[in-house]
Design a protein around this nucleic acid. Sequence first.
DNA 1: ATACACGATGAAAACGTTTACGAAACACCG
DNA 2: CGGTGTTTCGTAAACGTTTTCATCGTGTAT
Lengths: 353, 353
Amino acid sequence: MTRAETSPSSSNDKPKRPVSIRGVAEHAGVSIATVSRVLNSPELVSPSTAERVQRAVRELGYRPNLFAKSLLTRRSRVIGVSLPDIHGEFYAELMHNADRRACERGYHLLVSSNAHHPDDGPQNGFALDLVDGLIVMLTERVRVDLDAIAGLDIPVTVIGVDPPGMPVETIICDNTIGAARATEHLLVATPPERCFFVGAHVGNLDSDQRATAFASVLRGRGHEPDPRQIAHGEFSFEWGWEWAMERCDEGTLAGSAVLAANDEIAVGIVNAARQRGLDIPRDLRIVGFDDSRICSLLRPELSSVRVPVDEMAREAVDALIRSLEEPGSTPRHIRLATSLVVRDSSRTAPENP
Amino acid sequence: MTRAETSPSSSNDKPKRPVSIRGVAEHAGVSIATVSRVLNSPELVSPSTAERVQRAVRELGYRPNLFAKSLLTRRSRVIGVSLPDIHGEFYAELMHNADRRACERGYHLLVSSNAHHPDDGPQNGFALDLVDGLIVMLTERVRVDLDAIAGLDIPVTVIGVDPPGMPVETIICDNTIGAARATEHLLVATPPERCFFVGAHVGNLDSDQRATAFASVLRGRGHEPDPRQIAHGEFSFEWGWEWAMERCDEGTLAGSAVLAANDEIAVGIVNAARQRGLDIPRDLRIVGFDDSRICSLLRPELSSVRVPVDEMAREAVDALIRSLEEPGSTPRHIRLATSLVVRDSSRTAPENP
DNA sequence: ATACACGATGAAAACGTTTACGAAACACCG
DNA sequence: CGGTGTTTCGTAAACGTTTTCATCGTGTAT
């Protein structure tokens, strides 16, 4: 601080711009156009000069300026990923697979968890101008999101909902199949009036679809589900615990079966039930949703409906890149299936001899 | 398809470039310099023309081209995040908090899980030229990573290791404190020769530090730890299970206490021990590491050493932005503490009356 | 009146690329 | 030897900004 004045011609704060294509051109004794051609379409340049230019590039450690390049080509090879949230391993897995695929195809991922939040700060508009396209994951039935997306002038892939009449690629996972299979599985040993669905709040797309499938199967068995058989809360351990405790206190939990809207809710229910002395699966059979890693870490292992998060991520990236590289192609709508994974928490005696 | 020729002057496949600053200037009857000034330093322009320009911007829906801007300013307001992996909720939490902070400060996150992998594809070099700075998380004691980072000509913040003599900001979490506290906690009711550390592979920075702290506390109690008291495997449920099963078969697990290098290993041990009829914490006391959400979802709840992942993420972003916006400032080295969270899995009778 | 500072604005030069266009060199064919 | 392609390469014009410098009034002090 006190000796800030010393060494006025200090050598360390030189800006030192990186070498540009011009430097390479001079060093190799060619024009900048030739350098550009060597880098982008080598077949247009003679082998001897190409070799000379490549040596110059190597010796000078030249790396092209991507901003200048993008300014001209209008491509950044960056795709934006907008998630409703980044909590929990579900999103970690989603991003892991998306990143992997994007990397394979020479793209990069710009992630943000709040690109479509109400408090739309200036930084969000900023990101939109930087990316070639956008992958948006939607979980709530809110129309405003779709309007905002429709206003975008870049390719978009939507995960989680298939809005009719929107010219975007969509990836959805068919909650119906898995939820229906799970419900049928529960009905094998439990009467319909003792089956429950414990979901998140009304308006959450996944939870609602799962609830609908659950109710539909019950109706198929000639049982119109009582409203109390379908509970709404949130995707949390605490909600599962709370719900189960109330049922226990009413004495209505023993001998029933539960399909939870995600694994965390299921774990809450399991813990509460055992706290009250119920045995899983003897007194309470339960199936979760997502088939997260925790399922096989629990005792008893938790049955769950598998959501193909890895495929969803890969398909989303592929779909976006397709609409990026083949503009004008009609958007596809991909539907991935969910499937039931039966483990100990829902097994009946005859199923596990 | 068959009627592709119709309507030769079809209006839909027009490239339609977005309006540029020039369009705004013409529409407002000013020069492009004035438009730029209105947008970047409004105090330099008279209120009346500023208002006129802003109206033109609004009417035309103008958004500045970030590539052109970055080309000139050499700033993209994007920071790269290079993680060793994106599995599990630890990284989800890290990214969630990093994204949140970056967004608050007007930056965006470009993530990649493989930026420093051996198969260094062209896309990685690509990303480096796009970001203003880089946050790198290191977990392995491999020197080559550091060399590669030193060769970068952009600001870097390193998470996880504090390499001496490198002019970068560093964020490390002090595994020592938490591991030592946990070991002391175990020693309260278990003799030193019955305490075990179950770690990941040798060379993993966190696991090794935790092991060293464990051994150090034992030595402080006058007990030189037997090599068999410190086991090496990997950060997985399966490794914990396997280790515990072997100890059970030897008959050496009952009556002992374990510090696991992460929560997943701990869960594996807990499950194996219970499978063999041991009661937690009566027959086996155990403490995990990371204090992940699963700790409070288990029964008994798992004691664990809390790693301040949220703070790490925020500090990393802040540190990088600092070295971005105040170049020449001497890099800081931030050390965050870990702390023991005692739950049921390690409680002794007197501690829980 | 002259000089001068000052606030508001425009003209033009960058920034580092890609690419259309054209010129030179060369081969081939008549 | 003159036309005609075909490579190969350089010139120069974009791309959309920011920023320096100059210009032009306008008000104020001499």
